[in-house]
């Protein structure tokens, strides 16, 4: 260990500094766009599983089981190498030739659809944790099922799942590193690349690690505030973890 040549300043030199900045930018961008897919889609799938309609529940269950029982990396390869081959001819041509940043968008799509299955499970358990009597009380007052969701189940359900949703968001942020397997230059792959070019392994990985930890800490802090602000008076917050 004593023989290790520390070389922190090299990280401030170009192109390495630029690599880290762009890698970090890409990581954040992938995570945010994928979440923008995962949150609404996952909510819809999760809610489908709480309705009384058997076929809607079945679709929701099938979606969740499909996406959470295949390793994310295998899903990434399927989206990148298999799906373009199975598309109709002109679509396939477009994806292979004209689509801008195919790796980036494939990774975003893959992460978004995968994370949606996790969001769906949180939303479902949040709604199901609400006592049945609440639904009954809403219906007994003459609210329609749609109104019961809108005014009672959703506002209460989403509040209780803020902590698990926070870790799912952090999950997509960390999982964005898998995009490197199909050639997206995000934070981890840039760190790896710097290591290969300069042999400053510790410096490169430590920088990436610190950036990941900083974002995690920041997100948790923000979400704790959100949780506190939205907390219902007289109840106890669970605390984001």
């Amino acid at each position: 260990m004593g023989a290790y040549n520390w070389n922190w300043p090299i990280l401030l030199k170009e192109p390495y500094f630029g690599w880290i900045v762009s890698g970090f930018g890409n990581t954040c961008l992938i995570a945010v766009i994928a979440w923008a897919i995962a949150f609404p889609l996952g909510s819809a799938v999760g809610l489908a599983r709480t309705t009384e309609l058997p076929w809607l529940r079945l679709i929701g269950t099938a979606y969740v089981e499909l996406f959470r029982n295949i390793p994310l990396l295998a899903q990434m390869f399927v989206w990148y190498y298999v799906v373009p081959e199975l598309l109709p001819n002109d679509w396939s041509q477009w994806v292979k030739r004209d689509m801008p940043y195919p790796q980036f968008y494939t990774a975003v799509l893959c992460l978004g659809l995968y994370t949606a299955s996790r969001v769906a499970e949180q939303v479902r358990s949040g709604i199901e944790a609400i006592p049945r009597g609440q639904r009954h009380a809403g219906l007994a007052m003459g609210l329609t099922p749609g109104q019961v969701y809108r005014y009672i189940l959703l506002p209460v359900g989403y509040r209780t799942i803020i902590p698990p949703l926070t870790s799912d968001f952090l999950g997509v942020f960390k999982n964005s590193s898998l995009a490197l397997t199909i050639g997206v230059l995000e934070l981890t792959s840039q760190a790896r690349q710097i290591e290969e070019y300069t042999f400053a392994a510790f410096e490169a990985f430590a920088t990436a690690t610190v950036l990941y930890c900083m974002v995690t800490g920041l997100v948790i802090l923000i979400m704790r505030q959100v949780e506190r602000r939205t907390r219902i008076a007289g109840t106890i917050a669970l605390g984001a973890s």
Binding site: G133, Q134, H136, A137, G138, A140, M141, G142, I152, I232
Partner: peptide
């Protein structure tokens, strides 16, 4: 249902 009031064992006020 809007014309029949109902009161539940566990109150079921919306929290």
């Amino acid at each position: 249902r809007a014309r029949i009031g109902m009161v539940f064992q566990n109150f079921e006020l919306f929290p």
